[in-house]
Simulated assay, not measured.
Amino acid sequence: MNQPQTSNSLFSRLRFVLVGTSHPGNIGAAARAMKTMGFSQLVLVNPRFANATTHEEAVAFASGAVDVLQSARIVETIEEALEGCNFAAALSARLREFSPPVTQPRALAAQLAGEASLNAALVFGSERYGLPNEIIERCNVLINIPANPEYSSLNLAQAVQLLAYEARVAATGEALPVSPIGFQGVAADLGQIEGMYAHLEQALVAVEFLDPSNPKKLMPRLKRLFSRAQLETEEVNILRGIARQIMKKLGQQ
């Protein structure tokens, strides 16, 4: 496989994040799926087995992709897994009431390949429970694979293979470019966005727009609203500045 490995190629910018994986064999198979498509960044969040990357079943299912296993990072939180990313896409067969915008693998792959400023993560849940709402709400988009509605369940490694394939085709083929409207700045990383949400929530409580004892669904709705905007760093700074000025005027800063 002779894919480009420049600093801004999709092969260098895309990581695969597996959350709470139960079966070591699925981790090995996912590593193999990634390597066949030219990807190598694998991050495991709280896998069931502490030796997930060296477990005999993982090594067996990885086949010739043991190097991807050996270089995989094991972390405790999704925050650690997404560190350095400014875009994250969660995979789920179940649509959520307050999910970010829903997209399909091919459209997402074209976007990731077309926007060289995106350092992205594809986030996959556990085999039994999928992804919890709080992780999905942190992501920019929710990937929904258009499968048989009567049986839409994919094995974890199969899902990784499908996404890796679409990403490879978009990176090496003639993917449709994503055309920015006017000036396009640097995409805000997920840590910056989470900080902005916290700051905005404080300001909304201060002006009594948000009742912390009865918050209802205000913050999830706002997160969904902003996730559609694909916020840039400068835009996050503006929103935090507004929140800061509200707090200052109320004498709470």
Rank of each mutant, 00 (worst) to 15 (best):
S7G: 12
S9W: 03
R13G: 00
T21N: 10
T21L: 09
P24T: 06
P24E: 08
A29E: 04
A29R: 14
A30T: 00
A30K: 04
G38Y: 05
V43G: 02
P47G: 13
A50R: 15
T53I: 00
H55E: 08
E57H: 14
A60V: 08
A65H: 04
V66I: 02
V75N: 14
E76A: 09
A89E: 09
A89M: 05
A90S: 15
A90G: 13
A93V: 07
L95P: 07
E97A: 11
P105G: 02
A107I: 03
A107Y: 10
A110K: 14
G114Y: 09
Y129A: 15
L131R: 15
L131H: 13
I135G: 02
R138I: 04
N140F: 02
A147R: 10
Y151M: 00
A164Q: 08
A167V: 10
I181D: 09
G182Y: 01
F183R: 14
G185K: 11
D189Y: 01
I193N: 10
A203M: 06
V205M: 10
V205W: 06
V205P: 08
V207Y: 06
P212T: 02
N214H: 15
L218D: 13
R224D: 03
L225V: 01
A229Y: 12
Q230F: 11
T233F: 04
V236N: 05
N237H: 02
G241P: 12
I242K: 01
Q245F: 05
M247K: 00
L250M: 14
